[in-house]
Design a protein around this nucleic acid. Structure first.
Length: 217
DNA sequence: CTACCGATTGACT
DNA sequence: GTCAATCGGTAGA
């Protein structure tokens, strides 16, 4: 029964393929907005639409975890694209998708999603919080989706537990904004945070350095 | 082994 | 808006 539901879920919402992730990190970041994150457990399914991301670039990006070379912590980022890079910070976890090609050391941080399915299960995992706070922030969404360090290195294109998909209905002309990345202390502010305008699940302050609309070709 | 620190959050003014 | 709790990763003795 459960297996059938999972198979049905995966055929209706097929995982994004490796070629989606094997592109320039900023392009992947922009295209991840509006995509859906699915999480299956025996307890049920949780899903959300990605509304906020940040790009961490392969070269000359002092804020990127790979900037000072390979370590046990960041080695997944040097592996094949389409894998989950889960790291811990301040006693919490954050989820990234590895991008570009093997050996580059770059990823997109998924900072916030808008809940679609399984809000009750998210509430159980998060405890008593306002529904708006369920998935607003990288560590909050990981808790709501039941993600921890054991998901580091998971293949997002082939996992039964966690995957990304295109939206069933293509959200017409998303209004995308950009700003400096949150919590990143770097001398030069590159605007590598991207988010959907006017979405209440986007984290961070309302105004940020360099904030403005993104023009897409 | 110890010391420092952060891609955060939640509580508080 | 401000601030401190929190703990794994990392560097260094």
């Amino acid at each position: 029964m459960r297996k059938l539901r999972l198979a049905e879920m995966r055929s209706q919402h097929p995982a994004l393929p490796t070629r989606f992730y094997s592109r320039a990190t900023v392009d992947v970041a922009l295209d991840l907005l509006g995509k859906h994150l699915f999480r299956w457990t025996p307890q049920g399914v949780t899903a959300g639409m990605i509304v906020e991301v940040e790009a961490y670039l392969p070269q000359r990006d002092p804020a990127c975890h790979t900037y000072r070379g390979k370590t046990p912590r960041n080695e997944v980022m040097f592996g094949p694209p389409g894998r989950a890079y889960v790291y811990s910070i301040h006693a919490r976890y954050c989820l990234n998708a590895v991008t570009e090609s093997r050996g580059q050391g770059c990823a997109v941080l998924i900072r916030a999603v808008e809940p679609i399915l399984g809000m009750e299960l998210m509430q159980m995992r998060r405890g008593q919080v306002k529904s708006r706070e369920l998935t607003r922030g990288p560590a909050r969404l990981c808790e709501a989706f039941g993600l921890g360090r054991c998901f580091n290195g998971l293949d997002l294109t082939g996992s039964q537990a966690l995957w990304l998909t295109r939206a069933k209905k293509c959200p017409k002309s998303l209004r995308i904004m950009r700003s400096a990345r949150i919590g990143v202390t770097e001398p030069r502010h590159r605007c590598l945070r991207f988010f959907l305008a006017d979405n209440e699940y986007v984290s961070g302050p309302r105004k940020m350095l360099g904030m403005g609309p993104v023009r897409r070709n």
